[in-house]
């Protein structure tokens, strides 16, 4: 296999795995629900995106054609991540989930 492609695949895989892990660490470690919401919507989405791109490069260098499913998966994840985050934030505001003490401002009543 082309060494450049191999290098790019390895790099993207490691970056993707690292971002997914960091998103999960954020989910486990941050103090309240609204701060936890940030990890999955950004870090995890980008992590999976990087893994998907490495899959595209891998299969296209193997000569199995350029994957369209991969692009659909990425596009779908990037379109749905903000929507589900927004729905969850609304649900949390409705249930009056506790926020950490150093939060400035306050959520609206639902």
């Amino acid at each position: 296999m082309n060494p450049y492609a191999e290098f790019a695949i390895c790099l993207l895989l490691i970056i993707g795995g690292a971002f997914t892990l960091i998103g999960a660490i954020g989910l486990a470690r941050l103090p309240d629900f609204f701060t936890r919401l940030h990890g999955p919507t950004k870090a995890t989405t980008v992590g999976v995106g990087a893994i998907v791109i490495s899959s595209v490069i891998y299969f296209s260098t193997l000569g199995q054609g350029i994957g369209i499913e991969e692009f659909l998966i990425t596009a779908f994840l990037f379109m749905t991540a903000p929507v589900s985050a927004n729905f969850l934030a609304k649900a949390a505001m409705h249930l009056k989930v506790n926020t950490t003490e150093n939060t400035r401002g306050h959520p609206w009543d639902q």
Partner: peptide
Amino acid sequence: ASVEVARLILSPRPARPAFV
């Protein structure tokens, strides 16, 4: 944004969240 959020998650200082 992901890099920034990642750095913030891994740094030991507490975040300063706010509703704007």
